[in-house]
């Protein structure tokens, strides 16, 4: 695609005060988990023209995903999410370089997954994997944009120690949750878009509004609360020197 078409594609967003398309073009973002959260953030980061999207998920699309995972359609059922997501995102914006990693996140794979990225977006559905990602984010000093949903509720936060606390400041490992988690489409959609917004701001050098804060979104009462999350001096991860 020529330079002219590229300019045309982004012509509306470059009018936004403070926007820096070149910075976005040079950036790599990792999205771990291509479910309801990851679908929303991936679509909008690709649409905005991020340089490279690293997509990580080892699941296949199921019919019960389709109420909220907007990257997929009926014909995607049974296919690997990274492949289907890759197809959809490439069709949306061929200028974005896509790395499709059909990899299970664990303590052995996480190091390679985060390598070279500027920001990590959490699209996960369990706390154990989130702690692994949080730990690696702390170790490599790459900001971690947390997202989680349940029913009408959605949370988002931007963790970047030592500037802020981390996920382990807030929650303890080993928590269980009901399976399947009740969720409908707009809640992870809303949170995924907040995560994408914060990622774009960070990449462009604009201070993320969720730095050291937790957004609590309640779709039932349509409330948005911001809770300051200070560093926990007893955090088992980020309080250690």
């Amino acid at each position: 695609m020529g330079r002219e078409r590229e300019s045309e594609r982004y012509s509306r967003q470059i009018l936004v005060p403070g926007w820096n398309q070149e910075k976005l073009k040079r950036a790599t973002a990792l999205i771990v988990g291509l479910g309801g959260l990851g679908s929303a953030s991936a679509l909008y980061l690709a649409g905005a023209g991020i340089g490279r999207l690293r997509l990580c998920d080892c699941d296949k699309v199921e019919r019960s995903d389709l109420n909220r995972q907007v990257l997929y359609e009926e014909s995607s059922i049974g296919s690997f999410k990274v492949e289907e997501a890759g197809r959809r995102l490439a069709a949306l914006n061929p200028l974005v370089e896509l790395e499709k990693l059909n990899v299970f996140l664990d303590s052995h794979t996480v190091g390679e997954l985060v390598k070279g990225c500027q920001v990590i977006l959490d699209g996960l559905d369990n706390l154990e994997s989130r702690f692994i990602l949080n730990q690696e984010s702390f170790k490599k000093r790459i900001p971690y944009i947390y997202g989680a949903v349940h029913g009408w509720l959605g949370y988002a936060g931007f963790f970047h120690p030592p500037q802020t606390g981390c996920l382990a400041c807030l929650m303890q490992p080993g928590l269980s949750q009901p399976e399947p988690v009740p969720v409908f489409g707009t809640v992870p959609g809303m949170i995924g878009l907040v995560q994408a917004t914060e990622a774009i701001k960070w990449i462009q050098g604009i201070a993320p509004s969720l730095l050291g804060r937790l957004l609590i979104y309640d779709g039932l009462h349509l409330t948005f609360d911001l809770v300051n999350v200070d560093k926990n001096p007893a955090c088992p991860l980020c309080s250690k020197k």
């Binding site: 807030l170 999350v229 926990n232």
Partner: peptide
Amino acid sequence: PHIVIMKNGVPVQN
């Protein structure tokens, strides 16, 4: 373990 409680912005869990 299923709730988060913060005192003056600092989680009390640990």
